[in-house]
């Protein structure tokens, strides 16, 4: 156990030391835009982590692992340790980036009551179309916390204009607890209104001449201001980590059977390929794809000074499956430090 931990520590150190230094400098140099900071940081980490992970098996197979090969530790353990080291190193990097971004945000006064936290996500599972004069109503429940001065609470409904009406645009009326807002809808947009304390439901009425679509699943979101910025950073870290450990696992696995450069590029291509194939087949990349639409929504949320939602369970499951699959296949293939083909 001690030996495995030592090995993990070595791999974490390999990945984390140069990467963390690089990141701190990069993130500190970016603008105070949280979305830009996150995008830049995660892209930089992805590059470092993928290339490094792809290079490890190659180094072992070309002789660098000889000193490990004589250690009385099972090779499957060494492989598992290598993967854990790669994953932990990646997590260390993203944690360092998170801390830097959080510190930067706090410095810029972007946190505090201006940050919005999701209070409730609700609505039908499928999209519905409202023809002129039709309404849609959704209960939103009681406020999660009592009203206080300076505390903001808003409801928003995801919508778009669609075919079927007399005009290609329409007007939506959103009402909640006496507050209302008329919004012109010409494309996909959020219908939003500030919620008074007593509101328990939201109603959307199509008061224009075009057709209005309420886009499922769960098109109604209630947001309220919060001080809990750390939770948002942790959730963002979860999104980024799920994506990165997936890339690292793929790179580590591919690195067993090909050179590090090709393995790193191919790992990125496999992920991009999954994105493109599902986009073409289903109209949008799937929610379970780590680094997919859920991550995009989280990035958008940071741009709107909203706290991102947690990564979907399916995305975490997909990342875990890639990780375990990569580690298992890698362990089997690395039974020989130098297999016959690559000798």
């Amino acid at each position: 156990m001690t030996s495995t931990l030592s090995f993990v520590a070595l791999l974490v150190r390999r990945l984390a030391t140069p990467g963390a230094l690089f990141l701190v400098i990069c993130v500190a140099a970016t603008s105070s835009d949280a979305r830009a900071a996150w995008t830049f940081s995660v892209a930089a980490i992805a590059l470092i982590a993928t290339v490094r992970a792809a290079a490890w098996p190659d180094a072992w197979l070309t002789g660098e692992g000889d000193w490990l090969g004589t250690a009385p530790v099972p090779r499957t353990w060494l492989m598992a340790s290598a993967w854990i080291g790669a994953a932990l190193g990646t997590l260390v990097l993203t944690a360092a980036a998170s801390a830097t971004i959080a510190a930067r945000s706090a410095w810029d006064g972007e946190v505090g009551h201006t940050l919005l936290e999701a209070e409730r996500i609700a609505g039908p599972a499928r999209s519905i179309v409202l023809m002129p004069g039709e309404s849609f109503e959704q209960p939103i429940g009681e406020p999660a916390a009592p009203a206080s001065p300076g505390r903001k609470r808003e409801v928003r409904v995801r919508s778009t204009v669609t075919l079927g009406g007399e005009t290609p645009t329409t007007i939506a009326l959103i009402e909640a607890g006496g507050a209302s807002q008329r919004i012109f809808v010409a494309r996909r947009t959020w219908l939003a209104v500030d919620l008074p304390g007593a509101a328990t439901s939201v109603r959307v009425t199509n008061v224009g001449e075009g057709a209005l679509a309420i886009l499922g699943p769960d098109p109604v979101e209630v947001w309220s201001s919060s001080n809990a910025w750390l939770g948002g950073v942790v959730r963002m870290w979860g999104h980024a980590s799920a994506w990165l450990v997936t890339l690292v696992s793929l790179a580590l696995l591919l690195g067993v059977v090909m050179g590090p450069g090709v393995a790193a590029v191919l790992a990125a291509c496999v992920w991009l390929g999954a994105w493109m194939i599902w986009s073409r087949a289903a109209g949008a990349p799937p929610d379970w794809l780590p680094g997919g639409p859920a991550f995009q929504r989280a990035l958008e949320a940071t741009h709107e000074q909203r706290s991102p939602l947690a990564p979907p369970t399916v995305a975490i499951a997909a990342a875990a499956a890639t990780v375990m699959g990569g580690a298992a296949v890698g362990a089997v293939l690395l039974r020989h430090w130098r297999d016959e083909v690559r000798g």
């Binding site: 030996s3 090995f7 070595l10 390999r14 000889d66 000193w67 490990l68 009385p72 530790v73």
Partner: peptide, 21 residues
């Protein structure tokens, strides 16, 4: 020179000793 280049000599030897049990 197959040993981990980024480790100090004493750390690397500790790691190897640890792997040797």
């Amino acid at each position: 020179q197959p040993f981990p280049a980024e480790l100090r000599a004493i750390d690397a030897l500790h790691l190897i000793a640890s792997l040797k049990g």
